[in-house]
Amino acid sequence: MESSNSTHGPYSINETTTQNSQTDRVEKSINLPIFMFAGGAVGNLIAIIVLSVSRQQRKSSAFYTLVCGLAVTDLLGTCLASPITIANYLNPNVLLDQHVCEFQSFLLLFFGLTGLSIICTMAAERYLAICCPYTYQRWGVDRRFAQKLLLFIYISHIFFCCLPMMGMANSKLQPSETWCFIDWRKHDPVSTTYSVLYSVVSLLLILGTILLNLAVCGALLMMRQRVVQLPVTRGSVRERWRALSSAAETQMIAVLVMTSVVVLACSAPLVVRVFANCFSDEKNFKADLAAIRIASVNPILDPWIYILLRKSLFRRFLGLSRRGSSSRSSSPPLTQTTLFTTSIVKDSSVFTQLMCNASIITQLPATVTFTPRDTERASSRLDSAE
């Protein structure tokens, strides 16, 4: 009896110590997915509320609708994928169920590709609005048009991302046993074809977004040159007011560029890992896990772009930047006439001047019309100054 008790006692102590250490590791590891879930859900909810309180005329724009669609997509992705990850940390047998594993793999495929598609659509909408305004008006790009695009993106991506569950590829629990994804190391022709196809589509969306953003930025630079070259005459007042109307487009570009940088930076590592695992036999499980974690950060960062780049906060920031630049300049005081013209013509930060005259993401991209009252008001200012 004594011998049995003496052998059983240390074993019980060791077993208890092992269980406690495992519990501590689980508690430490589960903090990250819980934090990411809370950050993504709360941030996107705040962003949707901020977008919802905008003016009615702003809500009718296509860009506004696409931004709302991206926020809703990020919120859905966070609320659907994160609970499965948290449940798997609490019970490692959750992802051993093949149906649950396939569902999580579908979520990662779908929301990753949908975010890239919406960002590319936003870039294309800005390109048409600024570089091809006639085509933009002829196609009737508005809120309903953007809603149809979002519906098409969702339906087509659901079908494409359901192909693994239809037998075109296999979903597999990854070596870290915390997430499921397509079996990108299975070198049979069908599975490899789907992995390569998914990577190619993602890469094309990334390249398309970059090229469209560069084209739009180039168009804005050309617009700035036209404003600088306009003569300072009374007849050019209307043209200068039209130049200032591009502020809505410029502010939309600010949101688009920031969101594109975040989405592309978070999505590119996973696309690279898919290519690497398809065409290379080298295994790097840590890089795979890091890539999927970086992709999971995207829904957390996106909404804060919409929140922080609101009209009030953004104009305050620009006001502080202009105040700092004006305090450093030693130029003599300007007359009222030069305040109206030179601030547009001679200021090197013309984009800053344009961004201060409209809201960031919710102005209509259509051609702005000016009433005779606006022109008379501008002309009266010049007459009084002279």
Rank of each mutant, 00 (worst) to 15 (best):
P10L: 11
P10K: 12
Y11P: 02
S12E: 11
I13Y: 15
N14A: 07
E15C: 10
T16W: 11
T17C: 11
T18G: 11
R25W: 09
V26Q: 13
M36N: 08
I46M: 09
S52L: 10
Q56L: 15
R58H: 07
R58V: 08
K59T: 05
K59P: 00
A62T: 04
V67T: 07
G69L: 00
L70N: 01
L70A: 01
A71I: 10
A71L: 13
A71F: 00
T73S: 12
L75P: 00
L76V: 02
T78C: 06
L80R: 01
A81E: 02
I84V: 13
T85V: 14
N93S: 14
E102P: 06
F103E: 02
F103N: 07
F106P: 02
L109V: 01
F111R: 02
G115I: 03
L116Q: 04
M122R: 05
A123P: 05
A124T: 08
L128P: 03
Q137K: 14
K148V: 12
I153D: 06
H157A: 09
H157D: 06
C161T: 09
M166E: 04
N170I: 08
L173H: 01
S176A: 03
D183S: 08
R185P: 08
K186N: 11
H187Q: 09
V190Q: 09
Y194W: 07
S195V: 10
V196Q: 04
L205Y: 03
I206N: 03
L212R: 09
N213E: 11
L214Y: 10
A219G: 08
L220E: 04
L221Y: 13
M222S: 12
V227G: 11
V227K: 06
L230I: 03
L230N: 02
P231V: 02
P231Y: 00
T233V: 05
R242L: 14
S245E: 03
S246M: 13
A248F: 09
E249A: 13
V255N: 07
V255Q: 06
M258D: 13
V263Y: 02
V263A: 05
C266Y: 00
V272N: 06
V274Y: 03
V274E: 05
F275M: 07
A276L: 12
S280A: 04
N284L: 04
F285D: 15
A287F: 04
D288N: 06
A291P: 00
A295E: 07
S296R: 05
P299E: 05
P303E: 03
I305H: 01
Y306M: 14
I307W: 03
I307C: 10
L308N: 03
S312Q: 12
L313D: 12
F314D: 03
L318R: 09
G319N: 01
S325Q: 10
S327P: 04
R328M: 12
R328S: 13
P332H: 00
T335S: 10
Q336P: 09
T341R: 15
T342P: 06
T342K: 12
V345H: 04
D347W: 00
D347F: 07
F351M: 13
M355Y: 05
N357I: 11
A358D: 12
S359N: 08
S359E: 10
I360A: 14
I361A: 13
L364Q: 15
L364V: 15
A366W: 13
T367W: 09
V368F: 05
T369K: 14
T369R: 14
F370N: 01
T371V: 01
P372L: 03
S379F: 06
S379E: 11
S380M: 13
S380C: 13
R381T: 12
E386Q: 15
